[in-house]
């Protein structure tokens, strides 16, 4: 079996004295959409932050495409294709839409490729093209989420970490965002998706992990988890 794109092995993360991740292990294989679902404060965002080096595990290893990430600074991972669209979208409000997008390509030197990807981003999200000279802070929540994803794509990710892309969005906008996630994945980008909207996340992913109080509870193919009584009761509001 090929190396996973991303692997967390027995990762423990602390915030001061708080044990935020307790022996978390997960893997994401090439071409997959893997989702991590769980309640508020379960450790979803912490897991992503650890995966991209913003937080350092006290023990355990994070491996990206066969390489141990201990001591590799976050800003260097972007050039290697590990890119995160952060929770709360992380739009720079004082920068224009286009400047935000160009920052996504900050690590890249191939001007022609960047220009082509910028055009492609505007094709993917025509709303952003209309607003390219507008400041990021003036966009609606949905538009900011589109910008956040488009900006992450500007880095040509091989693995895209998405933190709560549906947060605070209207259902129709959420659907549009998930349709985009499907499309990006079909074009070859591996995705690790963190969501509170378990229903949507399970519909648009191959496999899922359920995390509670910093521990992975169980995992499996998303289609199976959707009918799993434990998931239905806790996350899908059924049963």
């Amino acid at each position: 079996m090929a190396d996973p794109v991303l692997q967390l092995a027995d990762v423990n993360v602390y915030y001061g004295a708080v044990h935020a991740l307790r022996g978390v292990s997960l893997r994401v294989d090439e071409g997959e959409v893997v989702t991590l679902i769980g309640g508020n404060g379960a450790g979803k965002t912490t897991t992503l932050a650890t995966a991209c080096g913003l937080l350092r595990p006290r023990s355990g290893t994070v491996t990206y495409r066969g390489r141990d990430l201990a001591g590799v600074p976050t800003h260097k991972l972007v050039a290697q294709g590990l890119v995160m669209a952060p929770e709360g979208r992380g739009i720079f409000p004082n920068l224009t839409v286009e400047e935000n997008l160009m920052l996504g390509a900050y690590s890249r030197r191939d001007k022609a490729g960047v220009a082509a990807d910028l055009r492609r981003g505007f094709e993917l999200f025509p709303r952003l093209a209309e607003r390219r000279k507008q400041r990021g802070g003036t966009l609606s929540g949905g538009e900011q989420q589109m910008l956040s994803i488009a900006r992450a794509l500007m880095a040509r990710p091989r693995l895209l970490l998405l933190d709560e892309p549906s947060l605070g969005l209207a259902p129709l906008v959420t659907q549009a965002i998930f349709a985009t996630i499907d499309r990006i994945n079909k074009e070859g980008v591996t995705i690790l998706l963190v969501e509170q909207n378990a229903n949507m996340a399970l519909r648009h992913s191959h496999r899922a992990y359920v995390i509670e109080t910093g521990e992975i509870q169980f995992s499996g193919p998303s289609a199976e988890l959707r009918t799993d009584p434990r998931v239905k009761a806790a996350y899908l509001g059924e049963g």
Partner: peptide
């Protein structure tokens, strides 16, 4: 642009690949 990004939000700037 990287400087302006840092002045707003260092964490996100880092995620963009800014040192």
């Amino acid at each position: 642009a990287a400087m302006r990004a840092c002045s707003h939000d260092m964490r996100t700037a880092r995620l963009m690949g800014v040192n």
